[in-house]
Amino acid sequence: MTKFPHSGSESRLERGRRALAEIDGEAGEKVVASLADIAPDFATYLLEFPFGDIYSRPGLDLRAREIATIAALTAMGNAAPQLKVHIEAGLNVGLSREEITEIIMQMAVYAGFPAALNGLFAAKEVFAK
């Protein structure tokens, strides 16, 4: 289980940057960079809270966190760009294409076929890269 422990010497921002690099790699950095000209403070919040605080908590490994995130974004049905980033993250932390496909298909039961279809098409785009 990869953890990003809270230490007194590392800020939330530093811990968030470290977590983002491991989880999302280049895709995450692109999201942060794309905010620089419109909302740089929001990029900081994105690094500090989700990655510096939540992803860095003990209790779930990064693989389990990405399963939950892919499922939630699929169920939302309106977050394709974020879903694609997290599908890439899932691959980065050890999920297989088959596992990601199954996670998305499972959401048809709870979020409906349109949400699952949108998720599968997002996964197809990511897998084609």
Rank of each mutant, 00 (worst) to 15 (best):
M1A: 11
T2E: 15
T2M: 14
K3Y: 12
H6C: 07
S9D: 15
S9I: 08
S11A: 07
S11N: 01
R12A: 13
L13M: 06
L13P: 02
E14M: 01
R15Q: 01
G16S: 04
A19K: 01
L20W: 04
I23Q: 10
D24E: 13
G25F: 05
G28T: 06
K30M: 13
V31F: 11
V32T: 12
A33M: 03
L35C: 10
D37R: 12
D37L: 04
D37T: 00
A39L: 11
A39N: 11
A39W: 04
A43L: 10
Y45W: 13
L46R: 11
F49G: 03
P50I: 04
G52W: 00
I54R: 00
Y55I: 03
P58E: 15
G59A: 07
L60N: 07
L60A: 05
L60F: 15
L60Q: 08
L62H: 00
L62F: 03
L62I: 05
R63V: 09
A64N: 14
I67H: 01
A68L: 15
A72Y: 00
A72S: 09
T74R: 04
T74F: 02
G77C: 10
N78V: 14
A79L: 13
P81C: 10
Q82Y: 12
L83V: 02
L83F: 03
L83E: 07
K84G: 05
K84I: 05
V85H: 09
V85T: 15
V85Y: 10
I87E: 01
E88L: 10
G90H: 02
L91F: 14
N92Y: 00
V93R: 05
V93D: 07
V93S: 00
G94W: 06
L95H: 11
S96W: 05
R97V: 12
R97N: 08
E98A: 11
I100H: 11
I100Q: 12
E102I: 01
M105A: 15
Q106W: 02
Q106H: 15
M107R: 12
A108F: 04
V109D: 00
V109R: 00
G112H: 02
P114V: 09
P114W: 11
L117V: 13
L120K: 08
F121A: 09
A122E: 02
A122R: 01
A123E: 06
K124A: 15
K124P: 00
E125N: 07
E125P: 01
V126F: 08
V126Y: 09
A128V: 01
K129Q: 13
